[in-house]
């Protein structure tokens, strides 16, 4: 589905140059569930941001569904992102002024579909993650686990084929964390590609392949035994 070829990301400030990703080569197939692990500061989030087209690589190639998107403008990236990629963040990143339903619909707001269809799809996905009964509530009224479920719903409501999850269980207790992982697993079984950054090796086990990063390099990749 996507290929990073010799991809580098370097952050430059006035005095300091930080190499976040150092000529990495990563390929991810459609339908894979990949975990990315490594110590703090190794470049995991940067990797996710580049893959998610939220950030541009400094060097190298990024092929997404066969296209090299490395040099694309923000507008083009936004269009690709809209239709293909869903994001889940550690701190949920829901909008507090909007209700749960509105938060989910927000993801469809920027697609060209009718309000009726938007509502229908939102309902559908809310049922799927089991949050429909809280549709009218504000995020601040929900528990962490429920908020993350809303985030998951938002990430898939547009029919996106790829989910990028940045430490999705980082703010959750073990029970809710597990719930979220099982949700992700379910999605993956339906065909959604998932790339997940995590600190927890037990959660990484839900993934089929784990990539270990250290100081911007891919150090090892391991496959879970079926």
């Amino acid at each position: 589905m996507l290929n990073l070829n010799n991809l580098s990301k370097i952050y430059r400030t006035e005095d300091v140059e930080t190499v976040a990703l150092n000529a990495v080569n990563i390929g991810i197939e459609q339908g894979e569930f990949v975990a990315v692990m490594g110590p703090s500061g190794c470049g995991k989030s940067t990797l996710l941001n580049v893959v998610g087209m939220l950030d541009r690589p400094s060097d190298g190639e990024y092929l997404f569904l066969g296209e090299d998107v490395a040099g694309y403008s923000e507008r083009k990236l936004s269009a690709i992102r809209k239709h293909n990629i869903g994001f889940i963040f550690q701190n949920f990143n829901l909008i507090d002024e909007l209700s749960v339903r509105e938060n989910i619909e927000l993801a469809l707001l920027y697609h060209d579909i009718s309000a009726k269809e938007r509502k229908a799809r939102a309902e559908e996905v809310m049922d799927k993650v089991g949050i429909a009964h809280r549709g009218k509530h504000r995020p601040s009224q929900l528990s962490g686990g429920q908020q993350q479920r809303v985030a998951v719903a938002r990430a898939v409501v547009g029919g996106q084929g790829l989910i990028l999850a940045d430490e999705p269980t980082g703010n959750l207790d073990s029970v809710h964390g597990q719930e979220v992982m099982e949700m992700l697993q379910g999605l993956n079984e339906e065909g959604t590609t998932i790339v997940m950054v995590t600190h927890s090796s037990s959660h990484a086990d839900y993934a089929r392949r784990t990539i270990n990063l250290f100081d911007g390099h891919v150090v090892t990749q391991s496959l879970r035994a079926a």
Partner: peptide, 13 residues
């Protein structure tokens, strides 16, 4: 700012 970031991530122009 954060909300705007989210909207952009979701595809707003």
């Amino acid at each position: 700012t954060r909300e705007i970031g989210i909207r952009k991530v979701l595809g707003a122009r």
